[in-house]
């Protein structure tokens, strides 16, 4: 679709009245069309202003207490996880800029982890365990940084194999460091019984590169390339039972072919 066709759809889109196909066309188009992007922002503001035309009534007081109490409870749990989300939690608008964005995110993230870890060490009890978890996260994050900043660092965008899935992954690797790193966004959380498993395909044979979980849509997996012999044709992710499988038991949910 050209700009004129897109602009004719923007009003309906901002009102949430475009079809799925129209919405997808618009979202794709505005990624690299500044003019349409600006127009879209403007109609979105107008659409949001419609919400102001309702009778404004006070939200119930118990709701306010409930919201704050829940937020407070979550404060002590998942601090480390929160740090991951701050690092990688945004949807990547265009995969092209992902490398630079991820590099910055990784640097920020490592610093945040360090601070959180110091905080935790000052506390006590079961915090030792959490500090240990954070230690391994920091190590993972260092590995990601090493990969991202290596002079031969490469990236490969992995797409969801089913068209309606929103998941996306980026695989970074550097032969020089012998390390790889996969980060994923929007893979659904699987619960305790299942995990995501990474497969590197060499000569049409999938070789496991370990398992990872996706937490609130964010997953990451550090990989040691030394364990993989031969030249990979592709990299993919499947869903497997907890503990992982020897061979993929289902279709890949994310996949990217690797150029020879």
């Amino acid at each position: 679709m050209d700009c004129q066709e897109i602009q004719e759809l923007l009003d309906a889109y901002a009102l949430g009245a475009a079809t799925k196909q129209e919405a997808e066309a618009i979202e794709l188009h505005v990624v690299d069309c500044v003019r349409c992007w600006e127009q879209l922002s403007e109609v979105q503001r107008v659409a949001a202003a419609l919400a102001l035309t309702v009778d404004i009534e006070p939200a119930p007081a118990p709701l306010r207490q409930r919201v704050f109490a829940t937020a407070e409870r979550g404060l002590s749990r998942g601090r480390a996880r929160a740090a991951i989300r701050r690092g990688f939690g945004r949807r990547w608008p265009a995969a092209a800029g992902a490398l630079a964005a991820a590099a910055v995110a990784a640097l920020v993230f490592a610093a945040v982890l360090q601070v959180e870890m110091n905080d935790l060490r000052d506390e006590n009890d079961d915090l030792a365990q959490r500090a240990a978890n954070l230690d391994s996260l920091v190590a993972e994050q260092r590995q990601l940084m090493a990969v991202l900043t290596a002079p031969d660092s490469k990236e490969l965008v992995m797409h969801a194999t089913s068209p309606e899935a929103e998941a996306v992954g980026v695989y970074y690797w550097s032969r020089q460091t012998g390390k790889g790193f996969l980060v994923s966004n929007n893979l659904p959380d699987l619960g305790e019984d299942r995990v995501y498993q990474v497969w590197v395909v060499v000569d049409e044979t999938p070789i496991s590169a370990g398992t990872f979980e996706s937490w609130e849509g964010i997953g990451q997996k550090a990989m040691d390339l030394a364990t993989i012999e031969g030249r990979p044709d592709g990299i993919g992710v499947t869903i497997e039972a907890a503990g992982g499988s020897d061979q993929p038991t289902d279709e890949m949910v994310l996949f990217a072919p690797m150029a020879r």
Binding site: I56, E57, L63, R64, A71, E72
Partner: peptide, 17 residues
Amino acid sequence: LEAFRSLYDRYGDLVYS
């Protein structure tokens, strides 16, 4: 948390309505 409370107090009624 205080920043969160402020945001809620700023927009909670509007979002609810």
